[in-house]
Design a protein around this nucleic acid. Structure first.
Lengths: 185, 185
DNA sequence: GTCTATATGGAGATAGAC
DNA sequence: GTCTATCTCCATATAGAC
């Protein structure tokens, strides 16, 4: 008999976490079944396209979350200096101060990069663009704003790599501090 | 009959490139056999420990290369300003201006991170330490040197992630320029 | 040292009962 | 919607001839 009646939406955050921890190929259906509490039947009922569809949906949800919580505020908040500070706080919370990796960044380095190339590119393009916009409004000129935005976006990814490699979240926190200083000063 | 008589040392750079392109799990023995021109028999003759041993050996060779070509020059070159400039040129060449990813960084984000944790940590620890040393000798005070070194090491990793995600090597080249400026100025 | 053949396991995915 | 049983494929690894 059925364990419980699940909703597809409830499963997505769990999938995201599994992909972060195990990568795309490492996230076996066995693990996914265990963590979601769903059998293969239910999984394929929700995601007829299998793992590939699961990852696509997860990436879409991540993109939507960043759009709502990071990119839009950067573009639309009246006080851009505040918005940039808020971005660093949101990012720090989102990545658990460097204890959690960026799924999009890890996919970019992974074997699966080509399969999800469009979603990966959009994520970073939108981030760069919205941050550039805020920096422009803070008072930086156009090329300077673009440079600083690129540096910050890449710095966040690098901080996640290094913090994970060294097993030291402080690496991430220090990088956030430095970048915020540089952008807002 | 045997195809050719190979040496283990010749195989290692090929393995490194395969792991970079496909990741650890994605690098199947089929691919490895194809690219090295070796059958499974030869592969297991050279690496009785299988793929895990292959990756360990590859990481060791990468570590040795960086020690000889990056870390030692940073520590020992009489003119540290020159050494830092040389580091950026070597790194840029090594990563093909951002077209090639860092195997160690990609492993750090991957499912296999725990299996190779020691080698991953050493790679970044040694890089940070040797760069800090050079910056110290350039004239930065201790905490400043440490901060700048950490920022540069992490910036290189982030630049590789973003360049790959956007399919744009210029992202990498710009990041190298900015960092060199900041470190040497 | 290299090859081919094979063992064995686990992967993703499907079928159909309930 | 959920389950179990099953299919097929390809993974790593081994054995033993040459």
């Amino acid at each position: 008999m059925p364990r419980t009646v699940a909703e597809r939406a409830d499963v997505i955050p769990v999938l995201a976490e599994i992909f972060r921890e195990h990568g795309f190929e490492g996230a076996s259906l066995a693990i996914i079944g265990e963590r979601t509490g769903l059998g293969k039947g239910s999984l394929y009922h929700f995601f007829p396209g299998g793992k590939e569809e699961m990852a696509t949906v997860v990436l879409a949800e991540i993109g939507a979350w960043f759009e709502a919580n990071i990119y839009r505020p950067l573009r639309e908040t009246a006080e851009p200096r505040t918005a940039v500070g808020a971005m660093f706080r949101s990012v720090s919370a989102y990545f658990y101060s460097g204890r959690r990796i960026c799924l999009v960044g890890s996919f970019a380095l992974d074997n699966v990069r080509d399969r999800f190339a469009d979603q990966i590119r959009s994520y970073f393009t939108a981030w760069k663009a919205s941050l550039t916009d805020a920096l422009r409004r803070i008072g930086h000129n156009e090329p300077e704003a673009r440079d600083l935005a690129e540096e910050a976006v890449l710095g966040i990814q690098g901080a996640l790599v290094l913090a994970r490699a060294l097993g030291d979240p402080l690496v991430f926190e220090r990088a956030m501090q430095r970048m915020e200083q540089r952008l807002i000063a």
